[in-house]
Amino acid sequence: MTIDFNKGEGLVPAIIQDEQTLEVLMLGYMNAEAYQKTVSENKVTFFSRTKNRLWTKGEESGNFLNVVSIREDCDNDTLLIKVNPVGPTCHKGNRSCFDTAYNQNFIFELEKIIEDRYANPVEGSYVNKLRNKGLNKIAQKVGEEGVETVIAALNETEHDLINEASDLVFHLLVLLKEKNVSLEKIAHNLEGRHSGK
């Protein structure tokens, strides 16, 4: 990378984004030393302007920001760092320092929860009950929920439609996990269709 630390008197802004949900979690500043530490340890380290020292996010709380990727902008003076956060990012206990009213990309977080249920089964978990019944039952549930969504759209209230559509999306996510297909692959496919590729 050719990061221009001189423009900001030795500091560049670093935008921290959840790798899976794409939610912006916080903004901090890095000097060259903080950047190198971040790269070498794969945990986000900032230069704290108030403490006048390097500061690894989570060094006290344990809520580290594990680095997935780092990109610089077109002017080489701002970083976009995608992370897997451990716990809430904000010191006030919120998911994001920007305290958005709701997680706009919760569907990606739900995908992560389902992946975790597959990796770390929880007794009594609905995901694990479905998984134990196998692919045919999971696919059948997607079909059932699809029909129920259509019925709700034609004959029931908006509230009913939202509930049935939510059930459909949830079961579709379980089916995609069962087949090892990520939402990212679906998004790439849809983007390709949109752009005519």
Rank of each mutant, 00 (worst) to 15 (best):
residue 105 N to V: 13
residue 195 S to A: 07
residue 189 N to F: 15
residue 86 V to N: 03
residue 167 D to Y: 07
residue 68 V to I: 09
residue 177 K to M: 03
residue 34 A to H: 08
residue 189 N to M: 15
residue 7 K to N: 14
residue 129 K to A: 07
residue 148 E to K: 02
residue 157 T to M: 01
residue 42 N to R: 09
residue 113 I to R: 14
residue 70 I to R: 04
residue 196 G to W: 02
residue 74 C to W: 04
residue 62 G to A: 02
residue 94 N to V: 08
residue 6 N to P: 10
residue 1 M to F: 07
residue 93 G to L: 04
residue 104 Q to T: 14
residue 49 R to E: 04
residue 83 V to P: 07
residue 84 N to D: 14
residue 169 V to T: 12
residue 113 I to E: 03
residue 142 V to M: 00
residue 107 I to T: 13
residue 39 V to Q: 05
residue 101 A to Y: 11
residue 67 V to S: 00
residue 180 N to K: 11
residue 64 F to W: 01
residue 165 A to F: 14
residue 16 I to P: 00
residue 192 G to T: 12
residue 116 D to N: 11
residue 191 E to H: 11
residue 90 C to L: 06
residue 88 P to I: 06
residue 75 D to Q: 15
residue 146 G to V: 06
residue 20 Q to G: 08
residue 117 R to V: 05
residue 44 V to D: 01
residue 61 S to L: 01
residue 119 A to F: 08
residue 11 L to D: 03
residue 56 T to G: 03
residue 38 T to V: 10
residue 89 T to V: 15
residue 39 V to H: 10
residue 37 K to D: 02
residue 188 H to D: 14
residue 88 P to K: 07
residue 95 R to K: 15
residue 91 H to Q: 13
residue 148 E to Q: 04
residue 81 I to V: 12
residue 68 V to K: 13
residue 135 L to Q: 10
residue 33 E to T: 08
residue 119 A to D: 04
residue 41 E to T: 14
residue 158 E to F: 13
residue 114 I to A: 03
residue 114 I to W: 00
residue 122 V to D: 02
residue 11 L to S: 05
residue 52 N to E: 11
residue 57 K to L: 10
residue 67 V to F: 06
residue 185 K to E: 09
residue 185 K to R: 15
residue 158 E to I: 15
residue 143 G to S: 04
residue 68 V to E: 03
residue 8 G to V: 13
residue 105 N to W: 12
residue 123 E to K: 08
residue 88 P to L: 03
